[in-house]
Design a protein around this nucleic acid. Structure first.
Lengths: 342, 342
DNA sequence: ATTATCTGCTTAAACGTTTAACCAAATATT
DNA sequence: AATATTTGGTTAAACGTTTAAGCAGATAAT
């Protein structure tokens, strides 16, 4: 049962009395091999249950046909779905993916890079950890001469492709929507300012307020790590204000959930007393009470484009990457938590 | 920038005027190489920024140092955490993991297996898809001569190691708890009967009822795919009964969430009118209103043991696996949804 | 002084492919 | 008929390691 009967290309060659090289070519559909031979090779390969040795071909060709993916955490629906779509595109082209999690830790992200390079991946697709500020570890990837693609969380300074949604515009649309609902004191529980996407959401929030002639009040703009726990804390801070907000826009669904809990616990009516909007459209957004307005980030498109970008680069022999942004328009999904009955 | 300067073992050998073999041995701390040479080799390796070619060593040694992990979906906290722990143990031993998702699909699971075998993994750790009944695809893994470890969702017939919690016992403890709270009509929204863990939960539920001299009522035992959507449906079915239950034990948190939504929407008081218990202790269990009683599955231990079991087998040269179950006692976490104030 | 053992290497083959270079036979071109 | 081209392969080297076998020189044992 546990014996390795590994059929090789050579075994097939022996059966047919041709060279191993001919078999290799036949399997790769080389034009210099006759249809008859190809057919025979495929037949014998099947009979002997031939499984190509991926390592050998990788060694010889210098391509591992493996793509590394680094995400902060797999247990968010956005990342899980994005990974799935990356996989779908790459599998079709014969690539497999290696998923690693950084757990939002800069140190782990560095280790992830080392791990992936060690594994001889042909490229890396990454969404950066919250903690990451220094970008030195990514230089290793460039030096290895393989393409690097960023999505969701990237940095301009890296000078590589980025795929993400238009965070600035999303904030505008959220504020527009809240203003339309009659809200006048709109708070924002934002992410870390140094992370581009959160910075863009903050900028969008500020500019949108101005557009609507609403004053920007410092006490209504908070910085958070966007965990559920911190969402609770920040919501409590807001409720402790003399002049409470009448709407809260939270830059992440998990933190928004924390905020929602606090509001529910204090019996504050959502959305009538305080309207609530999250970001990310995690499945639970549609499950909590009241159902939460949120922003869908098009994980399908993002994963697809990221994978396609990688494939594009691998077809070039000289990889010369430049900053290339692929910005998608996100979708605001309006639910009970921000929709007032008139 | 994008040039592959790949330092090899041979480059190091040239610098030091020794053979490549000596370098290889020095790097592996072989006893037949002098400390002096080892030191020199390590120094030169560092200077030249030597990165071992994993593929070459894998080809030669027949070990890829890669372990495949197959899970139904990565976006559940249990799987995400388990994967993390598997990774932690295996990374220490120089292994990397390749994560694939079956999306609860039997067909995708078959593809996952092919993908992983193609990638020459040294072993596979799997939690089976809901759909999976036929086990033929796993025979391929055995035939490849690599260890196969199952966790959470496994099957006795596979005759390989299984790590999971004691589902039967967990059901008992849930029912015990609910009876203690004064519940007399306890319903169970269970998973697919053909999946072992769900079957065990059902059996535990039935036996526990008997233990407490409660009648088993057919209308109170439902089979579900445990999605949030179906949780809603099944809860509605239960509410449509002439004699409604006074407690509902749901075999998965996502479905329990659906049930909770329905109860909240209909303003049914939890836990006083109907108590609710979930399973899996997803983070949201602690976030919903009311906070939901659930069962923690010890992802840390499960991942650790699964990885250790794999390592154990790789140390043997003749892999002869037998059914070996590692059953952990789960932890019932009692929260508001089932704790009545007296 | 002779033989045995140990130390610290070297040599060469092997892992299973891919691929550049070559070649004989068949067919086409002039 | 002589030469060129095409067809359908073959040969051999290479990818970067690991490892079994071998071996010279130093040290120890008798």
């Amino acid at each position: 049962m546990a014996k390795k009967n590994k059929t090789t290309i050579k075994d097939i060659a022996n059966v047919l009395n041709i060279s191993a090289a001919a078999v290799s070519k036949a399997l790769h559909n080389d034009s210099r091999i006759s249809e008859k031979t190809k057919k025979a090779v495929r037949q014998v390969a099947e009979n002997l249950n031939y499984q190509p040795n991926h390592l050998a071909s990788a060694l010889r060709s210098g391509k591992s046909k493996l793509v590394g993916v680094i995400v902060p955490k797999t247990n968010s629906n956005f990342f899980s779905a994005t990974i799935h779509n990356i996989e779908e595109v790459l599998n079709k082209e014969g690539y497999n993916i290696i998923i690693t999690q950084s757990n939002e830790s800069y140190k782990k992200e560095c280790e992830n890079i080392d791990t992936l390079l060690f594994t001889q991946v042909d490229g890396i697709i990454v969404s950066m950890a919250n903690e990451t500020v220094d970008l030195q570890h990514f230089e290793k990837v460039k030096q290895a001469g393989i393409p690097l693609i960023t999505f969701d969380r990237g940095e301009n300074d890296l000078n590589v492709d980025y795929i993400g949604i238009d965070d600035y515009d999303s904030s505008h649309r959220i504020v527009d929507h809240l203003v339309e609902q009659g809200c006048k004191r709109i708070a924002h529980i934002g992410g870390f300012k140094h992370t581009r996407i959160y910075n863009n959401r903050i900028r969008g929030y500020i500019d949108a307020l101005e557009k609507h002639n609403l004053p920007l009040e410092k006490e209504l703009l908070l910085e958070s790590n966007l965990s559920t726990e911190d969402g609770r804390n920040k919501m409590q801070e807001l409720l402790a204000l003399d002049k409470k907000p009448d709407a809260v826009y939270v830059a992440g669904d998990y933190a928004a959930l924390g905020a929602l809990q606090v509001l529910n616990e204090k019996n504050i009516k959502i959305p009538d007393e305080i309207a609530l909007v999250g970001f990310g459209d995690e499945p639970f957004a549609n499950m909590v009470t009241p159902k939460m307005t949120s922003v869908n980030q098009h994980s399908y498109q993002i994963g697809k484009i990221a994978a396609e970008k990688f494939l594009e680069y691998t077809k070039q022999n000289q990889i010369q990457q430049t900053l290339q942004k692929h910005i998608l328009k996100a979708e605001l999904i309006i639910r009970e938590s921000s929709l007032k009955k008139k």
